[in-house]
Every structure is written in C-alpha cells, then in structure tokens.
C-alpha cells in the first residue's frame, strides 16, 4: 500500500464500488425475498400429508442438494449448462435465481424450526375454541412464527450479502467484480481489497442494524397483541 495519493485513489474507487454495492444489494434483497417465498412453499410441501409421501421426500432431496453443494458450483451449473443447450440467460437473472433457490433451502429449515417452536397446545386450544384454520394460521401461528424466525432470517440475509460476492465469477458487476476490475487496472491489491472489505462490512452492518430495529418493533407489537388477546379471552394467566 503506497501512501502517496492514497486518499485521492480511495475517493476515485468509491463511486465505482458504490455502484457495485448497489448490484450486490439488489441481488441479495431479491434473493432473500425469492428464498423466503420459495422456502415457505417448500415447507408447506414438506408438511403435506402429515410429513409423509413423495413431496416430503422431494423437499428433503432439494434441501440436501442446495445445502450440500457449494454456491459457486450451483452458479456455474446454472450459468453454463443452459447456454450449452443454446439457451442464454442474463447473468444477473441467473445470479438472483440461483441465490434465491439456494437461500430457499436454508429458509425452509429456519421456518421449520420456527413452526416447531410454537407449543402444540396453543393450536389445539384455538381449535377447541372453535377458531377456523385460517384464523389459527393468521392470528396465532404467523405472528409468533415471524417473531421466532426474524433473527435467523436477518442472519441469513447477512450470509446472502456475503455469499453474493461469488456471483462475480459469472460476470455480474457486483461489488466483488468491480473490485477485481479496479485491481486488474491499477494492481494495488491491498488497498483495493481492503476497501471492498470495509464496504462489505458496512453493507452487512447496515442489514444487521436495520434487521435488529425491525426485530425490536416486532417484539413490541407482539407484546401488545398478546395482552389484547388475553383480555379478549378473559384468561387470567397463560
């Protein structure tokens, strides 16, 4: 690292890296949303027929594959295999899809653990009060599930942001790729990669801070909801 003109160079990297960081966050945010939706579908499939039958088995294989192979390999397969058969997909789309499919496997397991944490007695009690299944899901299971899984989902989001550096390999101009381009142009590896590291720390830090803030609000709303719920049923203790 050469100190001469370091500040000027760093200010020159910044706008380029910021643009890359934008792509990183775009891909990561879309991937976490795709992953959450698909993860919920997977869990639903896995729990169908009381957790027996071919759907459950298919979800187990899906989760095992995405958990058991590196993201890099999944990306390379999704990027090169379709083009070998003459189908060209834009790298950005491949990146979002693969990261979403990958995250779905992990979020399915997060949701499964969250659902298991809700005491079975609550559901049974709700049914015995005559609550319809839809209300049991929306008013009893979902609020508690959201609160239970939120920290794990935020942590998964941070992992997705970090892992998204791998999409640079399939020519998506994310933060890691623009960093390598700057390095290839000026060959000052230490300062370039350290700047990128600081940038990633800021991104994951921001996700963590925002996630914790929302998490605190979720807890707060949950507390109020519980009190209202108790008053409505007239129970003196739970």
């Amino acid at each position: 690292m050469n100190a001469d003109g370091l500040l000027e160079r760093l200010t020159a990297y910044f706008p380029v890296m910021l643009q890359g960081a934008g792509i990183t966050m775009l891909v990561s945010s879309l991937a976490i949303i795709v992953g959450l939706a698909l993860g919920a579908c997977l869990l639903g499939m896995s729990l169908a027929n009381r957790g027996t039958g071919p759907l459950t088995w298919a979800v187990t294989v899906y989760v095992s594959f995405f958990r058991g192979t590196p993201l890099l390999v999944q990306l390379l397969m999704a990027f090169y295999l379709p083009s070998a058969f003459g189908w060209d997909m834009p790298p950005l789309l491949v990146a979002i899809l693969v990261m979403g499919l990958n995250s779905a496997a992990f979020q399915c397991q997060i949701l499964r653990a969250g659902l298991a944490a809700i005491p079975a007695g609550q559901i049974a009690a709700a049914y015995s009060f005559g609550m319809p299944q839809r209300k049991v899901f929306w008013n009893i299971q979902l609020p508690q599930l959201a609160r239970a899984v939120w920290p794990a989902v935020v942590s998964e989001f941070m992992d997705v942001v970090k892992n998204s550096a791998i999409i640079s390999v399939i020519a998506v101009a994310d933060l890691a790729r623009v960093t390598r381009q700057i390095f290839a142009a000026n060959y000052r590896p230490l300062e370039v990669f350290l700047s990128a590291g600081v940038m990633y720390l800021l991104l994951t830090g921001a996700v963590f801070a925002l996630g914790s803030w929302v998490g605190r609000r979720l807890q707060h709303r949950g507390g109020r909801g519980r009190r209202i719920g108790l008053a409505a049923t007239g129970a003196s203790h739970v």
Partner: peptide
C-alpha cells in the same frame, strides 16, 4: 464481528493478492 461481516472471497483475495505487497 469482522469475520462474520466479510465475504470469504474478499479475505481470500487479500491473502493471495494482497499479502505479497507486504
């Protein structure tokens, strides 16, 4: 905190490309 916020790929680049300059 540092390691959990940093992508492994960047750390790898620092180790392989960055360390020779020190």
């Amino acid at each position: 905190g540092l390691m959990r916020g940093l992508p492994f790929l960047i750390l790898l680049f620092i180790a392989y490309f960055g360390l020779p300059s020190v």
